[in-house]
């Protein structure tokens, strides 16, 4: 998974991205393009933004009204994060900002400069899946798969918060992630297995 956004990689998806156009997207090493806090500068129209995602700094040119979700999907082509309702009601767009889960559709990219953003693409280490990804596979925690990246990001945070210590607690603290297919029992089994192994 990590290879998908590594410079120099020639995976299938990178090729598609390049042929469909990478306008506005540049990859920079961590020590460059530190985001600045310009005080009361009025930002009008498209400007240069800098986002730190999965350990890398990405630059993009976008309007203030660009949500973090749209920045990830439409500008940076990190399409693992899904757009479901776009109103914070379904959880499909869940990502981590400074380690906390949020819905990326209800925040602006411009607000998240300088923060550490983690998306589903940042969970695996190379070809080694995150334990939660393994558990979703093992327990068949999805059908159509559209809610799955959000479910997994939320689940990882849920355990880290200490909110997965019982089935009931886990259900309550995962209620912001809707699964239209109804894979809830298997999602719950996956999360509880990872929680109990830690």
């Amino acid at each position: 998974m990590a290879s998908e956004w590594s410079p120099g990689s020639s995976s299938r998806r990178t090729f598609i991205k390049q042929t469909t156009g990478l306008a506005g997207l540049t990859l920079a090493p961590m020590n460059q393009a530190e985001p600045s806090a310009p005080g009361p500068t009025l930002v009008q129209g498209a400007t240069e933004l800098s986002l730190r995602i999965n350990g890398r700094v990405y630059s993009l040119r976008a309007e203030p009204r660009t949500t973090l979700l749209d920045a990830l999907r439409e500008y940076l082509h990190l399409t693992g994060t899904k757009k479901g309702c776009d109103h914070g009601q379904c959880g499909a767009c869940t990502v981590h900002v400074d380690g906390e889960r949020i819905t990326s559709c209800l925040t602006l990219a411009i607000m998240q400069q300088g923060k550490q953003i983690t998306t589903i693409e940042g969970l695996a280490k190379g070809d080694q899946l995150h334990p939660m990804q393994e558990a979703f596979l093992k327990h068949d925690g999805f059908q159509c798969g559209y809610c799955t990246p959000g479910q997994i990001m939320s689940a990882v945070a849920c355990i880290r918060e200490g909110h997965a210590t019982s089935d009931d607690q886990c259900r309550e603290w995962m209620s912001g992630n809707i699964c239209r297919c109804g894979a809830y029992p298997n999602i719950l089994a996956a999360i509880r297995e990872v929680a109990s192994s830690q």
């Binding site: 806090a37 005080g39 009361p40 009025l42 930002v43 203030p64 009204r65 602006l108 411009i110």
Partner: peptide, 14 residues
């Protein structure tokens, strides 16, 4: 969403 302007205030006065 409308095309709004954005500013980050660092003090209440700003």
């Amino acid at each position: 969403m409308n095309d709004f302007h954005y500013a980050k205030a660092s003090t209440a006065k700003e």
